[in-house]
Nucleic acid binder design. Structure first.
Lengths: 181, 181
DNA sequence: CATAGATTTCAGATAGTTCTGAAGAAAGTA
DNA sequence: TACTTTCTTCAGAACTATCTGAAATCTATG
């Protein structure tokens, strides 16, 4: 086999992409399927995925559905063929935007909602407090506000990143450099 | 108890911060300890953490060490007291920088290294390939390059952000919001 | 250097997640 | 309708991550 290094690089990438999954809150198999489809030019069917990654039909089915839900892969129907095929989004920036949108929804949004609730809980009560209790409440209020601002900054950063990809990094970099003084 | 809402908001925040942990690749207890220390004005010792969060000594010890490794909390020594106390970084911007730095190291860096290896594996071999094998190798090269470019853009953006952050969170947050539209 | 208090470590227990394989549903075809 | 192929679902199995509790280690002090 002359292409053994090419094939090895393919396997290495799939493996590593899967190993990274844990720190992204994604299951290893789901990430491996995504990597496989990202590298493969033609759409693959469930049996291809099962065979290439050595996973069961149930797992392949579930993880493919989840990837479709995320919007990272699409179903492809071939006329005259009963099977369903799947194809990954190949535009990296589009992929990134999708991942960011999902992660923001899962990670940042719940915190924002909780903080807002925490703030209103404190506001309900602060005016009636005196002495140390009042001081404590004010300290919490400050911490909650800081976190909220932090989340908003994260959101802006995410927006900025997706923009940066489209127009190129340079305009964003300049704007930030100006800010940094 | 007049402060029951204040206390409730404290518990709610700690709980939610912990629940979020999974999608950040951080253990729940570690996140809860961080939330507890973030909200508490005075440094706490291991026993305080054990009592307030109902966790074992071993778990408290391990998770506190891990938080120190991340740089999210500091050890505080009190003269005349053998116990060690822990205090969270309260500057949210500093916290943001720390989290981003760690996540980049854990999530982005390994991918970059893998891609570089994949690329060199392909380069070793491409010139000798002809026909379909050559076309496949070129396609892989393109996919790897796309991912690498993406990682580099992320890195640049993080660098700029942390630079921009020196002047305090609020102006940066506002400027980012404006930039991001 | 012996002791008591504090911290760390780690083998085994527990809890949580993901996978498997087979049954059943759905959809196309004769 | 009966049959075939494909897809989905889900109970139980397998695996992984995290915690517990106690023993070992460390450290300050008389």
């Amino acid at each position: 086999m002359e292409e053994q290094h090419v094939e090895a690089s393919r396997l290495l990438f799939i493996r590593r992409w899967g190993e990274m999954a844990a720190s992204w809150g994604i299951s290893r198999t789901m990430a491996e399927i995504h990597a496989l489809l990202y590298l493969t030019a033609e759409p693959l069917c469930t049996d291809d995925v099962m065979e290439q990654l050595s996973v069961s039909r149930g797992s392949a089915s579930t993880n493919l559905r989840e990837l479709v839900n995320w919007g990272l892969i699409h179903r492809v129907h071939r006329r005259g063929d009963r099977k369903e095929y799947f194809e990954a989004e190949k535009d990296v920036w589009q992929m990134f935007e999708t991942i960011v949108r999902e992660r923001r929804r899962r990670e940042v949004q719940p915190i924002v909602e909780t903080i807002e609730r925490c703030q209103s809980m404190i506001d309900d009560e602060t005016s009636g407090l005196r002495g140390q209790a009042r001081i404590d409440a004010d300290a919490y209020r400050k911490r909650f506000t800081d976190i909220l601002e932090f989340c908003e900054t994260m959101n802006s950063l995410f927006n900025l990143m997706t923009k940066a990809g489209r127009g190129g990094l340079s305009p964003v970099a300049k704007a930030l450099a100006r800010l940094a003084g």
